[in-house]
Amino acid sequence: MTQQYDKLSPDAFKPVKVNNKEAEQIAKPSLNFWQDAWLRLRKNKAAVVSIFVLFLLVIMAFVGTHLTSHGVDEQELSRANLPPKISWLAPIGIADGHAKVGGKDVDLYAQKNVKENYWFGTDGLGRDMFTRVWKGTQISLLIAVVAALIDVVIGVAYGGISAYYGGRVDDIMQRIVEILYGIPNLVIVILMIMVMEPGITAIIIAIALTGWIGMSRIVRGQVLKFKNQEFILAARTLGASNIRIIFKHLLPNILAIIVINTMFTVPTAIFFEAFLSFIGLGLQAPNASLGTLINDGYKNIQFQPYILAAPAVVLSILMIAFNLLGDGLRDAFDPKMKD
């Protein structure tokens, strides 16, 4: 086989001096870890929607209570037990203020002579459910976020110290954790509530008391993984102090995991608070949280399901949104896990 070649101009074979420095150039724009993660998160539709939904719910939790002229515990028996009525939905037969009373469909607003519309209806004491739901959301979020923050602070410190110093310190600290973990946390919570005055503080403490254990375990695992990596060893050979290693090298590397885990802690705390309030260990009347509202609502579920519906829907949306966002963040921070 003989090969045929195109005739090429002699110029083509002129040697060129290639600048070797050019071969070292990096063409891509410089992105740090968080920018990179944000780009990936933006591509995740569920996570983006969740961010918007959460944003909306948080705004409503603070603004919603002022949208109507009614206070949270403003009672007025003359307008008790009204079903929801929203003027622009009424013509299609939803939320038109009608309810079945004794088998007959009646317009309760007309019957009780109420001019105003209650978007989520009113409860047995005539309190505006709309205001109460957002107040409840506010309280639930507050409890969850504060409890989650306490979790993070205690969990990171405890797990970090345990893993970083290792050896005997780690042994003792882990035994303590195991003992704490062994006690059913409902027992601890019930004892706490009995000792303390029931209220927001008591619930936050009750949730945080055992909640940090999960975080501390995750942080401990991460610190154990990183503390023998070569970049930490390099810092040590350069003479870096423990403080420097912890704050400059370890924390930035486990921050992503902490953020993800917090995203999952918040809905857990919301749910736990709701659960405690629902079984009567949580907030006491007249305070409202999503849990107490659901508790109130389920008693009348047959006749006035709307009292249960509004807080239950808000609670569900909160939980789903936090979880989807947490999932999205996990994929964005650790793309290797997915592809």
Partner: peptide, 26 residues
């Protein structure tokens, strides 16, 4: 010298030319 080409945008001609002292115009 240098580093291997980035295959996101591979060079047009001989991929090794950028690191080669024998590189020619073509």
């Amino acid at each position: 010298p240098g580093t291997p080409p980035d295959l996101l945008s591979p060079p047009k001609g001989d991929a090794f030319a950028l690191r080669s002292e024998y590189a020619m115009q073509i």
